[in-house]
Structure formats: structure tokens, C-alpha cells
Write a protein that binds this DNA or RNA. Structure first.
Lengths: 234, 234
DNA sequence: TGTATTTTATTTGTCGACAAGATTTCGACA
DNA sequence: TGTCGAAATCTTGTCGACAAATAAAATACA
């Protein structure tokens, strides 16, 4: 499956090699183009990107730092698995970050943040209208990340980003379910959250963040258990 | 200042090079042996560890991922600065992680965790007795990290670890102040926290975690403002 | 035929070298 | 003497090659 066509790898700039590989591999992992457990071959990637192994190794080290790949010493590195057994720890962290970041946004947002947030919300609403499940997942994550950035706490924002990424991978497994009535409700809830933030209502913002998160968690958990039943049935 | 003595770099094993450099650089950064802003020269390190630049670069990439060094493209990488202006975001995150991890420990701890926690608490008490400020900082962090691990949420644990590391660097600036009456109070508070966890009292555990954290934050803030006044006075 | 052991092959970790950017030094000119 | 520009130096990013470690294949033996 190697791409033999000499796809104009236009003289990339010095120093951009690792970042390019990192970005692309990250997307392929989160979109499940590279499913969990896939082995990652350095020389194959080196040929694919027409560069040496050095920048590819740098990208892999970075991905390993974020837990997206696991590196066994002296042996192949592979895409990390999703830990379904301890999923509740993920949900705990996700809900808390939804609450905290929404509350902080209400406290610290500036006018310029609102524009960004509303743009993402419009994109999400458009994705819902278009019934594009993948776009829904992406724009929803972007919307909440924009809120988190308005909260101006890089420690929370970076953890939240990591959790949303991981969620992108989980939701990607079950995105079919997004084609029901729920997304429209999400659009309304987003509007409520924006209103609460604009009003600088800390308590309400946190509460809406929590309810929104728990709504999503319930949805995913329902899908997970349904899927378990299917597994057993097979 | 290069170490010319051929210090028996005993044939290190394959694959251990990068980890060795990473561990040592990390400690030197957190202990302020390498103060914020220090430039990091790759070839100097390569000579010092008697290895090629490749494993050193890998260590630097990892440190950059944790925010301990900043890498300017095509220019030198340097030890990251401590952001005193946005210190409150750090405190917000720290307090929340104290609360959450202590509460989760009360919920999920097992008997085997208590042994570890009590060992660290004993080490902290010993450091307080010995008036060893550096040991206090290290053992205190180890104690709270052990509690976090008993809470069994890797997302919270990793953020908390990062925050405690960063704190190690901040406290290292002002460790003299630890030579007052406060540390003994910390020992007592630690004992109370352990008791609350053992009793599986979620509410009390979270409350103690919060108070303990806010106590520490107040202490550090007092030091910071005092230091600012000194800066102005000079 | 099945298992243990040696041989081969694959893949990673490390190395030394070279070239692109950036910084500093030096010199020309006003 | 001060400022601008060119040459030299230094540091990083990338490369191809080699050796150690592991996995796979082939062979010997029961």
C-alpha cells in the first residue's frame, strides 16, 4: 500500500519535518485510520514521507509522551490501546474538566473570545444540520476547547485537550449513534452555556457544563454497554 | 567547565542513554541546578555523557513535551521560565488536584496503598525533624503523589505530578522559609488526611485536601509578595 | 512428527558527518 | 566614530551507515 506516486513533497522547510509527521500521525490515530494496536514501522514512514528516520523518531517520541503510542524497548512501537476497563476514570476526568473550564470561562473571558466560541458553535450547528457525524465530533471538541481557552488556565486546557482527543477516538467507534435526536439538544445546550458565560454566571456555567458532560457520558456509556451485548451475542 | 576526568561511563546498556539523560536533566532543572533561562547546548551534553547527540535530542524532546524546556526553531533550547504573572492559574489547578486526588483515594484505595502512603509520611516527618528543607519538599510531593495513585485515575495523577514538579521548582526558590513552625502542622494535617482516607470519608478527605492545599498556597503567596517587595527595595 | 537449537533476517538505537539558519565578527564607508 | 553589510563561526536539523537486540526461519535431533 505504499504510495509510489512521487507526490510532490515540495522541498519542506528545515525543522518542519518532525511536526508534519507528528500532525499527520496524530490525526490518523485519532481518526482510527491507524487502529489501536497497529505496529508503526519507522523505515516505512521514512519512505512514505521521503525523509530520514530521525525526524520520524522525534515525532514518535512526542506521540509517546502524550500516550498515543506505546514504545517497547528495542521492539516495535504501536498505537496505544483504548482502555475500556477503566473507562470510568476517563469519564470522571472529562466531567470535571467540562465543569471547571466552563466556569473559568465565565470568570475570565474577554470579548474577543466570544467571537471564536460563536464561530465554532455555528460550525457545530451546521454539522448537525448536515447530519455529518464526523464533523459533529470535531466541531464539538473545538467549541469546548475554545471555551476552555477563554478560561485562561493552561494546565486545565492541556488536560482537557488530551481528554477531548481521546474522546475523538472513542466516539469515532460509535459515531453512527449521533444520527438520532440528541445532537439538536446539544446545540441548544451550547447556546445556554454561551448565555451563562456571557452573563458571567459562574454557578450556572459550571452546572451547565456538568449536565452537558454527563449527558454525553450517558450517551457513550449506553453505546458501550450495547456494544458489549453485541459482542456477547456474536 | 567540561569534566575532563574519564569518569567510568560504564558501558551503558543499549536504549538506556536517552532515559539517563532525561532523568538527570529533569532533576537538575527541578532543583534549579539549571536555572530558568539557561541555554542547553547539545554538544556539551554529548561530551559530558560521552554519547552522540541523538539520545540527547530525544531527552530534550521529551522534556519539551512536559514544558520543562522551550525549543526555539533553529536556535538554542533553554530551560523554561517560571511564569510568575499567571501564578494564580497554577494555584487553581494545584488546589483542585489536591481535592480530587484525596477524595478519590478515600474511594478507591486498597490496603497495599496505605503502606506506601505511610512510608512517605514517615519520611516527611523525618525530614521535618531533621530541618532538611529540600527533603521536606521531595518527601511531601512523594506523599501526595502516593495518595493520588491510590485514587487510580491516571489523568489526574499525571497532571498532579506535573504540578508537583513545577512546585518543586518554585519552592526551591524559597525553601529557607520552611525553617519555621509550619512544617510540623503539615505533619499533623497529613495524619488527619490518612485517617479520613482510611475511614473512606469522601467529604472530609476532599475538605482536608483543599485546606491543606490552600495552606500551602497562602504560604507560597506570602513568600512571593515578600520577595517582590525585596525586588522593589533593591 | 514435534521440539530444541542454530542461523538468518528484520528492526531499533547510536554514531559521525554534512548542510541550512542564525549569530557574531570584521571591515567598508559615510 | 558610528552604521550598515559581508564573511566567518557556531548550533541545529537531517542524513546514511553500522551494530546490538529481537523475531523469524531453518536445521538438527529425539
Amino acid at each position: 500500500m505504499t504510495n509510489t506516486s512521487k507526490t510532490s513533497v515540495t522541498e519542506r522547510k528545515r525543522g518542519s519535518g518532525a511536526k508534519m509527521v507528528y500532525d499527520l500521525l496524530r490525526d490518523e490515530i485519532l481518526d482510527l485510520v491507524l487502529p489501536p494496536g497497529s505496529p508503526i514501522d519507522e523505515v516505512l514512514l521514512a519512505e512514505r514521507f521521503e525523509m530520514s528516520r530521525t525526524p520520524i523518531r522525534e515525532a514518535l517520541v512526542r506521540l509517546a509522551g502524550e500516550g498515543l503510542v506505546d514504545t517497547l524497548p528495542n521492539r516495535s512501537t504501536m498505537v496505544s490501546n483504548i482502555d475500556f476497563l477503566n473507562m470510568h476514570t476517563y469519564f470522571d476526568a472529562l466531567v470535571l474538566m467540562y465543569r471547571v473550564t466552563t466556569q473559568l470561562a465565565a470568570r475570565y473571558y474577554r470579548e474577543s473570545d466570544l467571537e471564536v466560541i460563536r464561530t465554532h458553535q455555528a460550525a457545530f450547528a451546521a454539522a448537525v444540520e448536515a447530519q455529518d457525524a464526523l464533523a459533529m465530533i470535531a466541531t464539538n471538541a473545538a467549541f469546548h476547547l475554545a471555551i476552555a481557552e477563554a478560561g485562561r488556565n493552561p494546565y486545565f486546557t492541556s488536560l482537557f485537550k488530551r481528554l477531548l482527543d481521546e474522546g475523538r477516538r472513542i466516539l469515532r467507534l460509535y459515531y453512527q449513534s449521533y444520527e438520532d435526536r440528541l445532537p439538536r439538544r446539544f446545540v441548544e445546550e451550547h447556546d445556554e452555556m454561551i448565555a451563562a458565560i456571557v452573563a458571567r454566571d459562574l454557578v450556572l456555567s459550571e452546572q451547565l457544563g456538568r449536565e452537558h458532560a454527563e449527558q454525553i457520558v450517558r450517551q457513550v456509556q449506553k453505546l458501550l454497554t450495547r456494544n458489549e451485548r453485541l459482542d456477547i451475542a456474536l
